[in-house]
Design a protein around this nucleic acid. Structure first.
Lengths: 239, 239
DNA sequence: CTTGACCTTGCCCCAGGGTCAAGCTTCGAC
DNA sequence: GTCGAAGCTTGACCCTGGGGCAAGGTCAAG
């Protein structure tokens, strides 16, 4: 004749849980002693361990209730299924562990591996952290809106980045962010940019999306994503 | 500018969860568009992925909130701790898998390995399933009331079972369950049992606990745990 | 101009955990 | 043998982290 605490201790379960199982009708309420305490038998213990095992495996209590008096074949099938589920959950937890480790560091949690590699390339190239952040946020938006397109675009863009002329243009744009709007280098830069577009626009019609302009566009919502020099540059290129 | 659905899809999280994070103050409510829809930026996406990673790792949302703007050192320490926790949970799930497998079969889930071995011995000896069940339930009660004592007792009892005379006595008691109360073999069995006790009582004072009598005692609450023949046997031994 | 997909708020459900005030029991100390 | 403190049990109520469902508004495409 066990008290609820002894039973709970035996089964590795809290008193709260046992009372919960009573409420759900999973475990029969035992007789009470003279003072109103519940007094349990070995049969309760056996049933409770079964309930605990299934419940710890994540089986909903309603289903546990059914399984407790299912025939052996049904039970075996259910156990197999539950075990699969358990394996999946273990795998999922492992993945979560990996992601947790990446939480500490870079951007790999937020963008696809290709984009992450691209951002690393930019970093190595000496691009400013500000620009890298703007790029990252742009790619997040693109990936979210259309992962397939983003995948195509990033491939193209990484190819584009192998072109020394484009790389130089990109770095100059990046540097120009901090220039004065009256800087004498701005008109020349606007010219070079326009020439570049003229030369390459014909080759691929989807290309216009992958230049600093799109990044600026995507970043318009962010405060401080543009600068006086960039504004001037935009006017120079339009006019 | 993302809708809540796009954002949820990107982060691998449900819409419900995102709204929940808003309610808890984990993720800032974004501006709404003209129709009242929430419109998210890349910054929301970044923050949401962090929240998701921690939440999936089982961190309470209140703590996630604190961690989101903790300094790197605090964060690193917290991540290490959370990771340990994750490892523990994975180990726990593995254990649950093992237990699940045993749910199908014998009694190993309910009693200690020693007791389970002992029950197997009984089975091999040809003891009835009824008696084995009564023994099992008795051991469950003993283990629950006092695991250390139960451990000592089972060791003693298994030793006792190596004695051929005791084994015979045990089997005869088991068989006697089904006899008629007028069976002529009962008085002799009562005699042999008394003799056995007389011979062994002196050796160990804790011994009386480990004989069929205790099993009967423990099982009194169970319906059908005694029989007319056993009742007669009890009277014969008393008188 | 309708249809299907999407978004809004609100409310209930799950599987317990925390906490509380009361009453019960058990143990050692007197 | 009895007294008090410590520990156990009782039910009740609120909290968590969302999932499900309802009922209504919105959007884009045919």
């Amino acid at each position: 004749m066990l008290t609820i605490g002894q039973l709970a201790n035996y089964a590795g379960v809290t008193i709260k849980a046992i009372r919960h199982y009573h409420e759900r009708g999973l475990l029969a309420e035992p007789d009470r002693d003279s003072s109103g305490y519940r007094r349990y038998t070995a049969e309760h213990a056996v049933k409770l361990v079964k309930i605990r095992t299934l419940a710890h495996a994540g089986v909903p209590l309603a289903r546990v209730k059914d399984l407790l008096d299912a025939d052996p074949d049904t039970l075996a099938a259910a156990i197999a299924e539950i075990d699969n589920d358990l394996q999946d959950r273990i795998a999922q937890l492992r993945r979560t562990r990996d992601q947790l480790a990446e939480l500490h560091g870079g951007d790999r949690l937020f963008v696809s591996p290709q984009v992450a590699d691209y951002l690393d390339d930019l970093r190595e190239l000496g691009v400013s952290e500000r620009a890298i952040r703007v790029e990252r946020d742009g790619w997040i938006l693109m990936q979210t809106a259309s992962p397939e397109d983003a995948c195509l675009w990033i491939t193209e863009k990484r190819e584009l980045m192998t072109n020394p002329e484009f790389r130089a243009l990109y770095l100059d744009h990046d540097a120009a962010y901090d220039w004065s709007p009256d800087d004498p280098r701005l008109p020349a830069l606007a010219d070079r940019t326009r020439n570049w577009f003229a030369k390459h626009h014909s080759r691929s019609e989807t290309q216009p999306v992958h230049n600093p302009t799109i990044a600026r566009l995507a970043a318009q919502s962010q405060p401080g994503a543009s600068s006086p020099a960039w504004d001037r540059l935009a006017r120079l290129m339009e006019g």
